[in-house]
Amino acid sequence: MKCIVGLGNPGKKYAKTRHNIGFMILDELVKQNHWSLEQTKFRGIYTTEHVNGEKILLLKPQTFMNLSGESLVQFMNFFDLEADDILVVYDDLDLPPGKIRLRKKGGHGGHNGIRNIIDHLGTKEFNRLRVGVGRPDGPVSVVDYVLGTFTKQEQAPVADSIDAAVKACEAWMTQPFNEVMNDFNAT
């Protein structure tokens, strides 16, 4: 069993913001595979699918970004998931738009959603798919930046990163994480 968790904030107000790239990627994954993401429980929206005999769970916590771990730990407890069974997809300020990076473990890097997940899981060792949103130019605060929408210049690279992230998620459904990490981090 594998679980892909896309991080973001619920509501139309946040739908197209940089902080919601995890939600955008799960939405695109669902769309491309003709799945439906509409079950609600565990303070989230989720679905259960099967790919090549592997049970695949998709989760979008609805707790707001900074409390993502609350939804995820409830979900993991119900489905009896281990930290190694999950892949958390989220925005990363340290990568430029259009870039993705996979990691097996690490700190929170200032990301409050990841900080909350680490706190709730009690470990830094879980699979991550970091999706670049870049850093703000000028006097814009980080909060305003991540809660802002992508610029016209960012839209093409962001579309590329969403496509690459969906492919990485699909690859992880059938391959070991280390293989997926090696394949996708090489680009």
Rank of each mutant, 00 (worst) to 15 (best):
3 C>E: 10
3 C>H: 10
9 N>S: 00
10 P>S: 10
15 A>C: 02
17 T>Q: 02
19 H>C: 07
19 H>S: 05
20 N>C: 01
21 I>G: 06
26 L>C: 14
29 L>T: 15
29 L>Q: 07
30 V>Y: 08
31 K>R: 15
32 Q>D: 14
38 E>W: 05
42 F>V: 02
42 F>D: 00
44 G>C: 03
45 I>Q: 09
46 Y>P: 02
48 T>D: 10
48 T>Q: 15
49 E>H: 14
50 H>N: 13
52 N>A: 12
52 N>W: 02
56 I>Q: 12
56 I>M: 13
58 L>W: 08
59 L>P: 06
63 T>D: 04
69 G>C: 08
72 L>V: 03
74 Q>N: 05
75 F>H: 02
82 E>L: 14
86 I>W: 09
93 L>P: 07
95 L>A: 04
96 P>G: 13
97 P>G: 07
97 P>W: 09
97 P>H: 07
97 P>S: 14
103 R>L: 08
103 R>P: 01
106 G>V: 07
108 H>V: 02
108 H>G: 11
114 I>W: 06
119 D>H: 03
124 K>S: 04
126 F>K: 06
130 R>P: 05
132 G>R: 11
135 R>G: 06
141 S>Y: 03
141 S>I: 09
141 S>N: 11
142 V>H: 12
142 V>N: 10
145 Y>L: 02
146 V>C: 05
147 L>Q: 08
148 G>H: 07
151 T>P: 05
152 K>T: 10
155 Q>E: 15
157 P>F: 13
160 D>E: 13
161 S>T: 04
162 I>G: 07
166 V>H: 00
168 A>R: 08
170 E>A: 13
172 W>Y: 15
173 M>Q: 15
180 V>K: 08
181 M>C: 10
185 N>L: 03
